[in-house]
Amino acid sequence: MATIVLEKIARDFYDGRQMRRVLYPTDLDLKPGELTIVSGPSGSGKTTLISIMGLVLKPSEGRLFLEGKEVTRLSDEKAAGIRLEKYGFVFQQAMLIEGLTVMQNVLLSYAIQGGRVSAEQRRKAMEILRALGLEEAAGMQPQLLSGGMKQRASIARALVKDPAILLCDEPTSSLDAENGQVVMNILKRIAVEEKRIVVVVSHDARVFPFADRLIKLENGKISSDTREFYSETSETRESRT
């Protein structure tokens, strides 16, 4: 079962004149089956934290463990391999590649390291698209989709390889309230029902009710980490919305 453990993880950036610490030594462990929301004002270190968790950025200090194995200083190639196998990413913008259809975008994870896409993988991708209400859009170019559809397609792309960890950076910020709710419902279900680690970075308070765990960052430090307050059943959530 996938777990992510951060031990005294910190990160500095050179801002052109001096080194600036954007993330102070942080301890954190993430377990499957819960939706974790990382929140905080702009510049608080949310994106840096999720980038380090996703092995796309190396920390300046500290150690990062994935399933008990240290992955702090992997080579680019090894990190790419782990990202391909274990991670799914949903970005602030859907970031679908223009020129590829929705289906081709979803299948990109299979193809990016030169692999051949099998009929089984296609069938599975179609199943995911169907589950996300995008069956009809499979052959369409991304520019023909609405914002909500694009974001759902990017979730499909993130899910197609059954990743143990799903990292989402402001997935609802470019969506209207209704589409935002749809996307959050999907992410919640993936976390709880499919027992995956789902981390959502967001400063949008409307998504907080979906959290099983809410981590607040301020000035590069965790200011609060709560589990109980925001947990709710799907029934109470539906009655509220």
Partner: peptide
Amino acid sequence: VMRAIGGR
């Protein structure tokens, strides 16, 4: 995006 999703 390609790099993030596992492209080397």
